[in-house]
């Protein structure tokens, strides 16, 4: 089966009936930014919507009907035992055993140590993907988070939409 055949044409209808306007489509392409250095010298920032956060930080609000429009910073030198997950919308069985399946912080640290990547930004970023106000998400949250990531001066950003 070709990947395009995995499209679920009824998904938008179904979800939009329950959460009007929540499923977005974009038809315009964003101009590609250029990677200015080889990966071996590049500084990487990781961004996740898996609800991973340092233990002791304010838990994401997983009960609010519109979601949680905040993000957490995660120190890139953290270890999995420093972190916990507050998110209900995806199967976290694997992440409970090995956080790297959704938030590969140890693998990124190892790739830097092995010289495959240059370095990591001091902070990674995390939020929850359940946000049911797409206008607010796009105009406010996405811009705020993108600015915060950009302020870490990454050469490249790796994102994992949970």
């Amino acid at each position: 089966m070709a990947p395009s055949e995995q499209l679920r044409p009824d998904l938008w209808t179904t979800v939009n009936e329950r959460y009007p306007g929540s499923m977005i489509r974009k038809s315009d392409a964003v101009a590609l930014a250029t990677l200015g250095v080889p990966l071996e010298r590049a500084r990487l920032c990781f961004v996740s919507s898996a609800g991973v956060q340092p233990i002791g930080t304010l838990p994401f609000d997983v009960a609010h009907p519109l979601g949680d429009f905040s993000y957490r910073t995660v120190p890139s030198n953290a270890v999995p035992s420093d972190l916990e997950i507050h998110q209900l919308k995806y199967p976290s069985a694997g992440a409970t055993q090995d956080l790297n399946v959704i938030f590969p912080i140890e693998r990124l640290q190892e790739l830097v140590a092995a010289g495959r990547l240059g370095s990591l930004t001091p902070q990674f970023f995390s939020f929850i993907g359940y946000n049911m106000d797409p206008v607010r998400f796009e105009r406010d949250f996405a811009e705020r988070l993108a600015a915060a990531v950009h302020a870490q001066e990454p050469d490249v950003a790796l994102l994992a939409p949970a």
Binding site: A33, T34, L145, D155
Partner: peptide, 19 residues
């Protein structure tokens, strides 16, 4: 997340997501 990625790319940071 795609909206964050699009905003970040517009700021000049090259991005890739794993979906």
């Amino acid at each position: 997340m795609a909206l964050v990625q699009r905003a970040l790319e517009r700021l000049g940071t090259p991005t890739v997501s794993v979906t």
